[in-house]
């Protein structure tokens, strides 16, 4: 069954159909949100937890979605907030345990059995982990998702100009990292 956003938004207004409509939303967006989160967080279990939190938050706040923005924009906004909250929490924990080798995100990524680190795609992923999280977000949205700056601006609540600058800086840093680590 094809996902028609207008139809699903109408169904959300009906308490009898709301859960069914939400199930359709989950089915439509679970994969793309998972991969977007996974590229940000790297670890599968963490990405899985975050994905569940995203949909729980969306469900709890579904009455506030009035179709003024696209469903994907609304969900991405929740997803990116969840990712940033998770990263900040992780950073705070790592400050407490600096001696833990797992606190180095690149080393942690290399030890992940669900990650193929020997490929160029893997090297790009490692390069991404060296970026500040906002730049990583912007790079993922633009490079992998080919999202327009205007949509990114809606999701991240940042000006188009700042996003463009952020992307250019990220791209340059990644190119240098790859050059030095091939």
């Amino acid at each position: 069954m094809k996902f028609e956003e207008n139809e699903v938004t109408k169904m959300l207004r009906d308490p009898e159909l709301q859960r069914k409509a939400f199930e359709m939303i989950v089915a439509e967006y679970q994969d793309q949100l998972y991969w977007q989160v996974r590229r940000m967080i790297s670890d599968h279990d963490d990405a899985d937890d975050i994905l569940q939190n995203i949909f729980i938050k969306a469900w709890v706040n579904i009455d506030s979605f009035r179709g003024e923005s696209r469903m994907s924009t609304w969900l991405y906004r929740i997803a990116m907030n969840e990712c940033i909250t998770f990263i900040n929490k992780k950073k705070a924990e790592q400050k407490v345990s600096l001696s833990d080798p797992d606190s180095d995100p690149v080393r942690h990524l290399e030890s992940d059995s669900y990650f193929d680190g020997d490929t160029m795609e893997g090297l790009l992923q490692k390069a991404l982990l060296t970026l500040p999280e906002k730049q990583r977000l912007v790079f993922n949205m633009k490079y992998f998702k080919e999202m327009k700056y205007e949509e990114m601006s809606d999701i991240l609540n940042t000006s188009v100009g700042a996003l463009k600058a952020s992307y250019h800086i990220a791209v340059k840093k990644i190119a240098v990292y790859i050059e030095n680590n091939v």
Partner: peptide, 22 residues
């Protein structure tokens, strides 16, 4: 720089998920 990255790394996915995850 973007072209350089694209040429060298492409847009492939180095991550995998446990079997049957989705």
């Amino acid at each position: 720089y973007e072209e350089e990255i694209l040429k060298k790394c492409g847009k492939g996915n180095p991550f995998r998920v446990p079997e049957g995850y989705f």
